[in-house]
């Protein structure tokens, strides 16, 4: 995932930020604390990389664990933040796998193919600076085009439910907010879509995604590059966001 470059903070500076945050709940301070520890979330996510889930998803889950840890950490106790954060983040990752196991259990082959497809698409996009076609991926992976199409469709099923829960669990700060959202997003979407009420059903991350794709007209590959996630991930998030919006509209109509 994309991480903002940040000045590395000393232990004392971090403790001091935590003390300020505990009193003020200032989102800017929280953002600084998140940035200072994103490497930790990333590194813990990587520990789970061989379990068939895309790294992007794992990093998102780990980042949610990080946000929880920041909210719950008590700087008054004589414990370093990382000592407290590691089990919280790992717990979040384990919970993620447990929840997934209880909802969808896909054949291992399908999950592996989905993972391999994801990697191949990312590799191709990075090397060629454009979104690949099915024949490109088929060549790259030594598969038939039919196998790639089936695999892409299967990858939709591998899509995770966890990402949708992130922003509400994390309070006001979603991952996209950390990466850099648009303040004017909701207003513009409201104006362009005339869906003021229904838009409120979406998290700020989902609103940002719609903004990037449908107002700024960025392609999925461009959004993926900008956010440091895969094109397949963007596709899944967009599909789910549109589903949520449609459902919200239906409810309002009733």
């Amino acid at each position: 995932m994309h991480r903002r470059p940040h000045k590395s903070l000393s232990r004392a500076e971090i403790q001091s930020l935590f003390r300020i945050y505990q009193d003020s709940h200032d989102p800017d301070i929280k953002s600084m604390l998140v940035n200072a520890h994103l490497d930790l979330a990333h590194s813990l996510a990587r520990r789970f990389i061989n379990r068939g889930e895309p790294l992007d998803d794992l990093v998102q889950v780990a980042s949610m664990g990080l946000l929880k840890a920041i909210d719950r950490f008590d700087p008054g106790r004589n414990v370093q933040f990382t000592t407290y954060a590691v089990p919280t983040i790992v717990g979040e990752l384990k919970r993620y796998f447990r929840d997934r196991a209880s909802t969808i259990r896909l054949p291992r082959g399908l999950r592996e193919r989905s993972h391999a497809l994801n990697s191949a698409i990312q590799r191709f996009s990075q090397e060629h600076g454009r979104s690949p076609g099915v024949p490109d991926i088929a060549r790259e992976m030594g598969l038939s085009e039919e196998e790639v199409i089936e695999g892409l469709e299967g990858a939709e099923s591998v899509s995770v439910a966890s990402l949708n829960t992130s922003s509400s669990e994390a309070g006001d700060l979603s991952l996209l907010d950390i990466i850099g959202g648009e303040d004017k997003t909701l207003k513009i979407l409201d104006e362009r879509l005339s869906l003021a009420g229904a838009m409120s059903a979406l998290s700020s991350r989902e609103q940002n995604l719609l903004y990037l794709r449908f107002i700024e007209g960025r392609s999925q590959t461009e959004i993926a590059q900008r956010l440091g996630i895969s094109q397949m991930h963007v596709s899944r998030l967009l599909r789910r966001t549109l589903q949520t919006l449609r459902q919200s509209l239906k409810t309002r109509e009733i």
């Binding site: 076609g133 099915v134 991926i137 892409l152 999925q220």
Partner: peptide, 12 residues
């Protein structure tokens, strides 16, 4: 997806 692939559209 199959038609899009046949016509040369990319994944986006």
């Amino acid at each position: 997806a199959a038609v899009a692939s046949k016509t040369g559209l990319n994944l986006d």
